[in-house]
Design a protein around this nucleic acid. Sequence first.
DNA 1: CATGTCTTTCCGTATTGTAGAAAATTCTTC
DNA 2: GAAGAATTTTCTACAATACGGAAAGACATG
Lengths: 281, 281
Amino acid sequence: MGEGRRAHSTARQSDVHVRALLRGLAVLEVLAQGQDLNLSEVARRARLPVSTTHRLLETLRRRGFVQPVEDGRYRVGLRAFEVGMGFLRAQRLPDVARPVMVELVDRVEETANLAVRDGAEAVYVLQVESDRMLRLFGQPGSRHPLYCTGVGKVLLAWEPEEEVRKLLGRGPLPRFTPRTLTDPDAVVRELRVVRARGYAVDREERESGVRCVAAPVRDAAGRVAAALSVSAPASRLPNRRIPQVAATVVSAADEISRRLGFSAVRNSPPPAGKIPVPSES
Amino acid sequence: MGEGRRAHSTARQSDVHVRALLRGLAVLEVLAQGQDLNLSEVARRARLPVSTTHRLLETLRRRGFVQPVEDGRYRVGLRAFEVGMGFLRAQRLPDVARPVMVELVDRVEETANLAVRDGAEAVYVLQVESDRMLRLFGQPGSRHPLYCTGVGKVLLAWEPEEEVRKLLGRGPLPRFTPRTLTDPDAVVRELRVVRARGYAVDREERESGVRCVAAPVRDAAGRVAAALSVSAPASRLPNRRIPQVAATVVSAADEISRRLGFSAVRNSPPPAGKIPVPSES
DNA sequence: CATGTCTTTCCGTATTGTAGAAAATTCTTC
DNA sequence: GAAGAATTTTCTACAATACGGAAAGACATG
């Protein structure tokens, strides 16, 4: 920065966006919440004029990204689903992780989740359900805070503290249950524990009655690429059972990491700096 | 310039589309195939000028619908995944169907799929895998032809023949295996059989070595809203086992229909006409 | 260093999206 | 059923905006 003498408008590479497309995407995002909305509600939520919204919706509809449903309401369409699944199709992660997760679920008899980080939130990408239980929460595609979920803590734990602070903000953090940690400092301390023992625990911090245990999945470069978790009703995850479950989760996560090309050999402490090779370039 | 009086003008809301948005969606669709592409490849496949494509990709990236990956390549982004999953979130179908499918998979020990029709293709929306087998084909979000898959035939069988003909075209239909029916007439005959016995069979017509059995799921209005199938290696689905598996699939599909509000009581022949009220859409 | 491929930026132009308002439609309410 | 409210849809004039060719950078390859 430190420039700014372009005559007419700013010449930032940042603002090469196409407004009409941005607005169309905004409409899609509004509908993605999962409720069917009519034109004017979409317009209100997307903060767009009605007639503009109408045009955008019509365009999205023609392409199948949005489908009209009874009563003049709209909902996310099949094509959007298809495109969205393209995300999984392109990643190696889901294919690699799924069989391991099936195995894991078999062992612990509880539902397993795989999540990745997106900014200050975790997004569930894959879920393998135990038949012992109907879904607790967190369908694939849903977002969750980082500081009060097992996967979230894992996704945070190996980030540099400065980054963590930035993501958490200055607090207090929104409280979901009596056990939620609302003080960023407390979270940072907790993350230290997570890092030390190699897995994270969520004791009803996000949702009363639900506990989970999570471990990091690393990619070939050694970065934490995802978090694997097992969640269960608190009654089925008493403290004394946690170490054993955690061991199982960690070993499953390690297996996924291995298959992604990560080799743990030289990195007891996960790779922080560069390789200390004194040879010059 | 007396333009046509809008008096009876056929409300052609057809040409109210936003080109920039259409193009952006086209870019997304290109990437949704699952391969990572660089700018110029995207431009080529989307048939757009490079500079335009660049701008669109940049816009999509800012919103997380596309993510840059190593080597200047792009792939479908997390946000697109989220939005796509909104499709499932909005539908009742997946939530209703999943538990029934889990049960079904438990019974037959083979992978179950749920598909809906989109134009002349079937799109898989839900899959429950048997642990006996690694995925055969057809991940959620993928498209398949109607005339040579179990789910496809089911989705076609209760449509009016005129519609079916239109969807099939004049043939010959693309052949995938030696058993594929390539003649529209043959398909129409086959559909009659499907309708009569209430389920469809695919005997390696799409993929050599893979058979499947499919049955219709009806919504509250009695329409075929989806198709439920079980697929397996041909060796595990010999002819003599098919009737029994089919019965299981049909009963699972019926259960889903029931939970969707369909009551089979008065409709031995699935509702073909409407209630004789001459109102129209 | 030359050459080809690919990405990014620039910029003048007219195409295209925009939004207000009016028309048409649907939903309420009496 | 009629009157009125609240939608959705169409229309239009205007200028903001997206456009795409071309040029300038990157980056690799021979």
